[in-house]
């Protein structure tokens, strides 16, 4: 398998899925295109390009040669981001950021407890003060008004 074959294949699947989903919407015609017209056209275009990529993809670099050494790290970071997205409006900005930074710096990057605590609490408080208090950007607060 080469990278182009994998990438192109994924795009083929996406295009086919889009075409399938677009069938639920009215198509219209050339003179009066409906809501499904442009998506169908674009998905077909994508399909053509993706098929070409797959067809010409034999010569590209092999999938096995791609380095994935950092994948654990990447997954951990994504997990922390998911936590942020889930808790931002539930726990409020400040708590979310403190916890997320603690997880990233303390757990993932193995910094000392003092660095972790100082950096996360300081960053959270400083950015909240600057953007929410001084510049009046509405940032979410938790159920405790914090």
């Amino acid at each position: 398998m080469t990278i182009d074959r994998v990438g192109g294949g994924a795009l083929v699947l996406f295009a086919v899925y889009t075409l399938w989903e677009a069938r639920k919407l009215p198509m219209g015609n050339v003179q009066n295109p409906g809501p499904a017209y442009a998506p169908t056209l674009l998905a077909l275009l994508l399909l053509v390009f993706a098929v070409v990529i797959v067809a010409l993809g034999a010569g590209s670099s092999r999938i096995a040669t791609v380095g994935w050494s950092e994948w654990r790290h990447a997954v951990a970071i994504i997990a922390v981001c998911i936590f942020m997205a889930l808790s931002l409006e539930r726990l409020g900005y400040r708590i979310t950021v403190v916890v997320a930074l603690m997880l990233l710096i303390g757990l993932l990057e193995r910094r000392s407890i003092v660095t972790t605590a100082l950096f996360s609490v300081g960053f959270s408080a400083a950015t909240f003060y600057l953007f929410a208090t001084v510049l009046r950007v509405p940032l979410p607060r938790g159920p405790w008004g914090f």
């Binding site: 970071i77 994504i78 922390v80 981001c81 998911i82 942020m84 997205a85 931002l88 409006e89 900005y93 950021v97 997320a100 930074l101 990233l104 710096i105 990057e109 910094r111 660095t115 950096f119 960053f123 959270s124 950015t127 953007f131 950007v137 509405p138 940032l139 979410p140």
Partner: peptide, 29 residues
């Protein structure tokens, strides 16, 4: 290791602030 957590937090803050929408944060993710 200290810079990227801050960048991530900034990204979440910035993307959220534009529309006040968590959906935008999910899209970013």
């Amino acid at each position: 290791p200290l810079l990227y957590p801050a960048i991530l937090a900034f990204s979440v803050l910035g993307v959220y602030a534009v529309n006040g929408s968590v959906v935008d944060v999910w899209i970013m993710l």
